[in-house]
Each structure stands twice: as structure tokens, then as C-alpha cells.
């Protein structure tokens, strides 16, 4: 402001933290908001599934392959189960397994990346060669291998996906940490006499986390598709009746000609949740970077 001379506007204005600033920028990012809406819908569906589903997802509630109606919003499947209820419960599984897998991957990858990037040297070399090995195997193949070895089940599914993404996180964190080593404020901390641990924890990690958060959001989108993909390949939850989206899709595929709406509803659920995380991830990338600030 041109006039604001007498009261320093800087003192008058309340401080906005970095997160406050990021939130402000995120609110102005339309695609990210669309993504956020998708995710909120998805999360609400998952959390509220027991309360809002009109029917028991495991029980037969109508005749086979009913078309969508007011009673059965998305129609029914071959066994007469309400697809709307099953999609809601499916969200629960995707969210639980997806978030679980990404958190696990973040923990494994984060620890490995922090050790490699923070300390360097021989340990860095060992960790990086290890991630190279894992990264050279396509992640879906790796997941298939792990599920095959460990047997089918939700926890196994989660673990398989976590292992296939952990190396990506490790590399990403290591890369950011390496770049930060020469940052002026890290050098400044060294000249003050800060210990290596302090520099890593206080100065390097907080600044290396942003790309990790962004990547985690984007990976969640892929994880949801992977879960469905593994379910589709018959590697989903042990109980074939479980309302898992991928498993449901296998059944629905047979009726593509006669009841295409089933595929559309299930596929739509997968697409909306995946796109939601993708859009949010991109939005976060833009809004979390203080350097992009005007």
C-alpha cells in the first residue's frame, strides 16, 4: 500500500505461518480444490459407510442385476447385493489399505532416505544400490510377487504396495537432503557449531519434507489403482465376497454388455478417488513451495 506509512504495515499485520500461507494459496488453486472435494467425498464415503449404506454389502437384497432405481441407486450385482453399499464399503478398503500402504512406505523410505542423504558415504552407497534393485522391478510385478509369497489378505496387500513405493520415497528424500547440504542456512548451522544430528533434524528434514508430502499424495492415487489392479488379478482380500473395487470389477466385467452401469459406477469410484489425490498433489506442489511465492 502506498499510503501506509505511519503504521508499519508489517507490524500491524498478523504473522502467517508457512502453512497458513500454503493454505491460502491452495484455496486459490481451483484444480486442487476440485481434488479436495473428490477426496472429501471419498473419505466421507469410507468413514460413513456403516451409517449411510442402505443395505448390508454382503447380503442379498434384491433380484440379480437390477437396474439403478431409487431403492438401489447403483443397481444390484449378480448375487443381488446393493452396489451402492458395496461401493461405499469399497472406499473404506481402498482408503484403509491405500493410506496404510503409503504411510508404511513413507516410514520405510523416509528412514532409509534420511540415513543415506544425511550421512552419506558407504551407507549411502549400500542403501542406494538396494533401492536400485527394487526400482528395477516394475512395482506391480513386485507387489504381485510379494502377495504371492505372503498369501492373500489386506495386510499383505498393504505391505506389498508399501514395499514397492518405499524406494521412490527413499530416493526422493535423499536427493532433497543432498541438495540441502550446501544450502546457506545449513552451512550457517555448521558455522554456529550445530551437531550433525541437529542439522539433519532441525534444518534439513523439515525442508526436505515438502516434496515427500506431494509425492505421497500422488502415490496414494496410484496406490488406489494398484489395489484395484491387484484385486482385479485375483490378489485382493482373502474373502472373495469382500467389497473391494478391483474384485468387484472382475465380477462386473462379465456383464459389460447386459449391465454396463455396474462397471461405470465402480470404475467411476476408482477414477474419482485417484484423480482427487492427483489434483491435490499437484496443487500441494505449487502451494507448498515458498519459492513460488509472488
Amino acid at each position: 500500500m502506498f499510503r501506509a506509512a505511519l503504521v508499519d504495515p508489517q507490524i500491524a499485520r498478523a504473522s502467517r505461518g508457512l502453512w497458513g500461507d500454503a493454505a491460502r494459496r491452495l484455496r486459490r488453486n481451483r484444480p486442487a480444490l476440485v481434488g479436495l472435494v473428490c477426496i472429501v467425498l471419498f473419505a466421507l464415503a469410507a468413514i460413513l459407510a456403516p451409517f449411510i449404506s442402505p443395505f448390508d454389502p454382503y447380503a442379498m437384497n434384491g433380484s440379480s442385476l437390477d437396474a439403478p432405481s431409487l431403492t438401489h441407486l447403483f443397481g444390484t450385482d449378480l448375487l443381488g447385493r446393493d452396489i451402492f453399499s458395496r461401493v461405499l464399503y469399497g472406499a473404506q478398503i481402498s482408503l484403509f489399505v491405500g493410506v496404510g500402504a503409503v504411510v508404511l512406505a513413507l516410514v520405510i523410505g523416509g528412514v532409509l532416505g534420511a540415513i543415506a542423504g544425511g550421512f552419506g558415504g558407504r551407507i549411502d552407497g549400500v542403501i542406494m544400490r538396494l533401492t536400485d534393485v527394487f526400482l528395477s522391478i516394475p512395482s506391480i510385478l513386485l507387489a504381485i510377487g510379494i502377495v504371492t509369497a505372503l498369501g492373500r489378505g489386506m495386510v499383505q496387500l498393504m505391505f506389498a504396495i508399501a514395499v514397492s513405493y518405499a524406494p521412490t520415497f527413499a530416493r526422493l528424500l535423499r536427493g532433497s537432503l543432498l541438495a540441502l547440504r550446501e544450502a546457506d542456512y545449513v552451512v550457517a548451522a555448521r558455522t554456529i557449531g550445530a551437531s550433525r544430528m541437529r542439522i539433519l533434524v532441525r534444518h534439513m528434514l523439515p525442508n526436505a519434507l515438502t516434496p515427500l508430502i506431494v509425492q505421497a499424495t500422488l502415490v496414494l492415487a496410484t496406490a488406489i489403482i494398484d489395489i484395484a489392479g491387484l484385486g482385479f488379478l485375483g490378489l485382493g482380500p482373502a474373502d472373495p465376497r469382500t467389497p473391494e473395487w478391483g474384485t468387484m470389477l472382475v465380477d462386473a466385467r462379465r456383464f459389460m454388455q447386459t449391465a454396463p452401469h455396474i462397471v461405470v459406477f465402480i470404475g467411476g469410484a476408482i477414477v474419482i478417488s485417484a484423480i482427487g489425490f492427483n489434483l491435490l498433489g499437484d496443487g500441494l506442489r505449487e502451494s507448498l513451495d515458498p519459492k513460488l511465492k509472488r
Binding site: 508457512l18 546457506d184 542456512y185 552451512v187 548451522a189 532441525r202 534444518h203 523439515p206 525442508n207 515458498p290
Partner: peptide, 12 residues
């Protein structure tokens, strides 16, 4: 330091 934008930890 030279660069006042790079020499302060943005997260502190």
C-alpha cells in the same frame, strides 16, 4: 552470508 533469501531456514 551473501544471499539473505538462502541463509535463513524457511521452516524456522
Amino acid at each position: 552470508f551473501q544471499d539473505p533469501y538462502a541463509s535463513l531456514n524457511p521452516r524456522m
